[in-house]
Amino acid sequence: MRVVFMGTPDFAVPSLDVLADGHELPLVVTRPDAVRGRGRTLAPSPVKAAALRRGIPVVEARRVTPDLVQAVRDARPDLVAVAAFGAILPDELLALPPRGCVNVHASLLPRWRGAAPIQRALMAGDERVGVSIMRLVHDLDAGAYCRQAPLPVGDLGAAELTRRLGELGARELAGALDDLAAGTIDWVEQDEALVTFAPKVEKAEMLLLPAYPARRNLSLVRASLDAAPARCRIAGQGVRVLAARPCAAADAPLAAGDVVVSKGRLLVGCADGALELLRVKPDGRCEMDAAAWARGLRNDLSWDAC
């Protein structure tokens, strides 16, 4: 099948790879080069880098313009496949390919339509996440789906879930295209009564607070990503919390806002118990073991929002 692929981050690279291995890709569309990493240098998107390694032509676009629509038309795709491209596709583009446009969406639709399904699932305490291969339509993530696959959350954070869901989504996309080619594809309309939305996560939503239950603070740590990190202030110092785990009440009888450094552990008191912080990144410093960092603190050992 002749497929135009549209995607940008690491999540989308496995889908690009499976399409390139089994189909003809005349064009890849991705977001423009951006400043990334600690060096703050201009770098290509992961999808662009992967496409160029394979010698696939790439077009960069921040939004879908008439010129981009024409580029897709000139590529003569049977189908357009999308995975976290980062822009809404207009109806004109959706109508171009004879086999339509499909999207690899990182949730079990109709739960978590929108830009941040993995983070929202973690913030809500969902016990499983998943992927859906859906038909793109005018309304946001509202199209019928043909394949879904679940993934248990366990103790995984957003970064690792994103990696695993990217691989799972690629597998399901390959299967969907096989079904489409064989004429055995089965589209299931979403139940509108079960819809929830996953808007972009703002930094202010990721502030850890002593007034929150320990489980809520832990969910924020697990949902943390570079664009919206879980943060707090400990002994007056701003810090990003990268990993944490819950403590039993008898193990850590701390009042909300208290901090204890004991026996190689950094414990912070929440509204209903405590968390043990495992990995932190203090402002202006590198990631490190939380207890090792805390041993150097000399100010009042309390914590609050940044």
Rank of each mutant, 00 (worst) to 15 (best):
V4S: 04
T8A: 05
D10R: 15
D10M: 07
S15W: 06
V18M: 05
D21W: 03
D21Q: 15
L25D: 05
A34F: 01
R36D: 00
L42Q: 09
P44V: 03
V47K: 05
A51Y: 08
G55P: 05
E60W: 05
A61V: 05
R62K: 13
T65P: 04
D67E: 15
L68Q: 07
V69L: 11
R76A: 14
R76V: 11
R76W: 10
L79Y: 03
V80N: 06
A81G: 03
V82A: 00
A83I: 01
L89A: 02
P90N: 06
A95N: 09
L96Q: 12
L96F: 04
P98N: 06
R99E: 14
G100W: 03
V102N: 02
V102I: 15
V104F: 05
A106H: 08
L109A: 10
A115Y: 10
Q119E: 14
Q119P: 04
G125L: 09
D126M: 12
R128G: 00
R128L: 10
V131K: 10
S132N: 09
S132Q: 07
R135Q: 13
A144G: 12
Y145A: 14
C146T: 15
Q148Y: 10
A149L: 13
V153C: 07
V153K: 04
D155I: 00
A159S: 14
E160L: 14
R164V: 02
L168S: 08
L177R: 03
L180R: 09
G183C: 02
I185W: 02
D186R: 14
W187T: 06
W187A: 01
E192S: 15
E192W: 09
L194G: 13
V195C: 06
F197R: 15
A198H: 11
A198L: 10
A198T: 10
V201P: 10
E202P: 02
K203F: 07
K203G: 11
A211P: 02
A214W: 07
R215G: 12
R215W: 07
V221R: 00
R222D: 00
S224F: 01
L225R: 15
A227N: 08
A228P: 06
A228W: 11
A228N: 04
P229V: 04
R233E: 15
G236M: 00
G236C: 03
R240K: 11
A243G: 02
A243Y: 01
P246S: 13
D251I: 09
D251C: 05
A252M: 09
A252E: 10
P253H: 06
P253Y: 04
L254I: 09
L254W: 08
A255T: 09
G257Y: 03
V259S: 03
V261K: 03
K263I: 04
K263P: 04
L267G: 00
C270W: 03
A271F: 05
D272R: 07
D272A: 06
D283S: 12
G284T: 12
G284L: 11
G284Y: 11
M288Y: 00
A290H: 00
A291H: 04
A292W: 07
W293R: 02
R295A: 12
R295T: 14
R295W: 13
D300G: 02
L301I: 01
S302A: 12
W303E: 00
A305D: 07
C306H: 12
